[in-house]
Simulated assay, not measured.
Amino acid sequence: MSTFTILLGGDLIRTPLLDRQVAGTRVIAADAGIGHARTLGLTPELWVGDFDSVPADLPADLAAIPRQVFPAEKDSTDGELAIAAALERGATSLVLAGAFGGRRIDHAFLHLALSLRLAERGTDVLLTSGAQEGIPLLPGRAGFDYADGTLFSILDFSDLSGLTVSGAKWPLDHVEVAFGSSLTLSNEVKGRLEIALDSGRALLLAHPFPLPES
């Protein structure tokens, strides 16, 4: 398996878990995502984009990274182009770091939707901000090693059929979930979290890092 970390322009905090997830991966930065290279102590092998959001005062080692330059008026986002570059280099697994938040909610939505399409084509995808992470859910059964009390939601991108959730404060047993329903929001891990799905498109959104006190 060849894992690439894609540095995107959304929110990112460094955590021990994130350090483990990106350790030993190949790295490609998408435009402003180069700023996260400093945060994580990573050196990308490629920097992709139209370079309209380059952080100021980049250190010389990051400024010298090979670039793949695209025009500002194009049919794909910088993030999608960076992912395409990783796939061309043989990526079978992706860590999308900085996939959430930031100034562009449209880009964040694209990362969620694109992760589902990639997963359906056989690419493992993890979306992360350090504080929260997303994992596409395909039909079948999957288990997740989160600590008790971890907050999670299942985001539906279509009607869901035969959804079963065990190892949770509020389990579900082979239920139907209408697209746009809030039934699967704000649950908590209680034991070994396992999720089964007969059909539909969904994404597990978990908060493995403690949330700040409000």
Results as ranks from 00 to 15, higher is better:
residue 193 L to E: 05
residue 182 S to K: 01
residue 154 I to W: 14
residue 165 V to W: 03
residue 183 L to Q: 00
residue 168 A to K: 10
residue 185 L to E: 10
residue 211 L to N: 14
residue 196 A to N: 00
residue 171 P to G: 12
residue 168 A to Q: 07
residue 164 T to K: 11
residue 150 T to S: 14
residue 190 K to L: 14
residue 209 F to E: 09
residue 139 P to R: 12
residue 149 G to V: 10
residue 158 S to P: 07
residue 151 L to H: 12
residue 211 L to Q: 15
residue 204 L to C: 01
residue 164 T to P: 04
residue 190 K to F: 06
residue 195 I to F: 03
residue 187 N to D: 05
residue 145 D to F: 14
residue 184 T to F: 08
residue 209 F to N: 01
residue 166 S to G: 11
residue 175 V to Q: 12
residue 198 D to W: 01
residue 179 F to M: 08
residue 150 T to Y: 09
residue 189 V to H: 10
residue 185 L to S: 04
residue 194 E to G: 06
residue 180 G to M: 05
residue 165 V to Y: 00
residue 170 W to Y: 15
residue 154 I to E: 08
residue 198 D to V: 06
residue 139 P to H: 15
residue 201 R to G: 01
residue 154 I to N: 09
residue 195 I to W: 05
residue 191 G to H: 03
residue 199 S to Q: 07
residue 147 A to S: 12
residue 151 L to R: 15
residue 174 H to C: 14
residue 202 A to D: 03
residue 168 A to M: 12
residue 182 S to R: 02
residue 176 E to H: 12
residue 174 H to K: 14
residue 213 E to N: 11
residue 206 A to K: 05
residue 152 F to K: 05
residue 190 K to G: 07
residue 187 N to Q: 05
residue 173 D to L: 09
residue 169 K to M: 04
residue 209 F to P: 00
residue 153 S to V: 01
residue 188 E to S: 11
residue 188 E to G: 04
residue 182 S to D: 04
residue 194 E to K: 00
residue 213 E to G: 03
residue 178 A to K: 04
residue 205 L to A: 03
residue 178 A to V: 08
residue 194 E to L: 01
residue 150 T to E: 15
residue 156 D to E: 07
residue 158 S to I: 09
residue 173 D to N: 12
residue 197 L to H: 02
residue 139 P to N: 13
residue 174 H to Q: 08
residue 145 D to H: 14
residue 157 F to A: 12
residue 180 G to L: 04
residue 159 D to V: 00
residue 164 T to V: 12
residue 157 F to L: 14
residue 204 L to W: 09
residue 172 L to Y: 11
residue 159 D to S: 09
residue 205 L to P: 02
residue 200 G to Y: 06
residue 184 T to P: 05
residue 177 V to C: 03
residue 153 S to K: 06
residue 185 L to D: 00
residue 175 V to L: 13
residue 177 V to R: 02
residue 154 I to F: 10
residue 203 L to Y: 11
residue 175 V to I: 14
residue 153 S to H: 00
residue 187 N to W: 02
residue 199 S to K: 07
residue 164 T to W: 12
residue 146 Y to I: 06
residue 165 V to S: 09
residue 193 L to M: 02
residue 202 A to P: 02
residue 144 F to A: 15
residue 189 V to A: 13
residue 191 G to Q: 05
residue 153 S to C: 02
residue 186 S to C: 07
residue 210 P to Q: 14
residue 171 P to R: 03
residue 149 G to I: 11
residue 175 V to M: 15
residue 149 G to P: 08
residue 165 V to F: 06
residue 211 L to V: 15
residue 206 A to H: 03
residue 186 S to Q: 02
residue 206 A to T: 02
residue 198 D to N: 07
residue 186 S to I: 00
residue 191 G to T: 00
residue 168 A to S: 15
residue 201 R to L: 08
residue 186 S to W: 04
residue 152 F to D: 12
residue 187 N to L: 02
residue 198 D to K: 11
residue 157 F to N: 03
residue 151 L to T: 10
residue 138 L to D: 01
residue 185 L to K: 03
residue 192 R to A: 13
residue 193 L to D: 05
residue 152 F to H: 06
residue 141 R to I: 13
residue 183 L to H: 04
residue 139 P to L: 14
residue 190 K to H: 12
residue 163 L to V: 07
residue 156 D to N: 13
